[in-house]
């Protein structure tokens, strides 16, 4: 008798378990659509470069910790080699967290008056992911640098 009731209960539970995944995925889909500022790396890059190619370059140096224990506060520093003169300077530095819901972190538009093309801040990372820095030069080219950051505790939520 006990065994029978146990089996009945077990059957009911497994039936529930079969239903659950579809509910979760539906909720995920809804979240994806309604998420504020939801954007992928591809579309964010295309919006900035206008279809131009982005080349990885040693001129852009991105420093971020290899392992971040707390994803809520990850220090990121970008510096770009440039004379910063009136006709050869870094127009902008863009920082992306490639696996965050909204990949855009900051778009920084510089002028020759900056003297040096540097930008530093602290960002939130949801999971282990690549941080991408894109520098827009005054001659219209786009240079980039990338670093993987391992996150122990996510910082988005």
């Amino acid at each position: 008798m006990e065994r029978r009731s146990f089996l009945k209960g077990f059957g009911a539970v497994s039936a529930c378990a079969a239903l659950v995944p579809s509910i979760v995925s539906a909720a995920d889909e809804a979240k994806k659509v309604s998420g504020p500022n939801e954007m992928s790396v591809e579309s964010a890059l295309a919006a900035i470069t206008g279809g131009k190619s982005v080349t990885p370059s040693s001129k852009v140096s991105l420093s971020a910790p290899e392992i971040a224990e707390n994803g809520a506060v990850v220090p990121v520093k970008v510096s770009v080699e440039s004379p910063m003169s009136a006709n050869d300077y870094v127009k902008a530095i863009h920082i992306f967290a490639t696996k965050n819901n909204n990949v855009r972190c900051a778009n920084v538009y510089l002028t020759p008056a900056n003297g040096e093309a540097t930008f530093a801040t602290r960002i939130k990372l949801g999971t282990t992911q690549d941080v991408l820095a894109v520098a827009e030069m005054s001659n219209g080219t786009f240079l980039s640098a990338k670093q993987n950051v391992k996150v122990t505790i996510g910082g988005c939520g």
């Binding site: 506060v73 910063m84 990949v103 900051a106 778009n107 920084v108 538009y109 008056a113 003297g115 540097t118």
Partner: peptide
Amino acid sequence: FNDKVLTKMVTWESLSVNPVLSISMK
């Protein structure tokens, strides 16, 4: 700086709580 644009930033929610933004200036 003296009412001339030095740097413009567009920032998003991925910045940490109490953000610090550092730049250079000549």
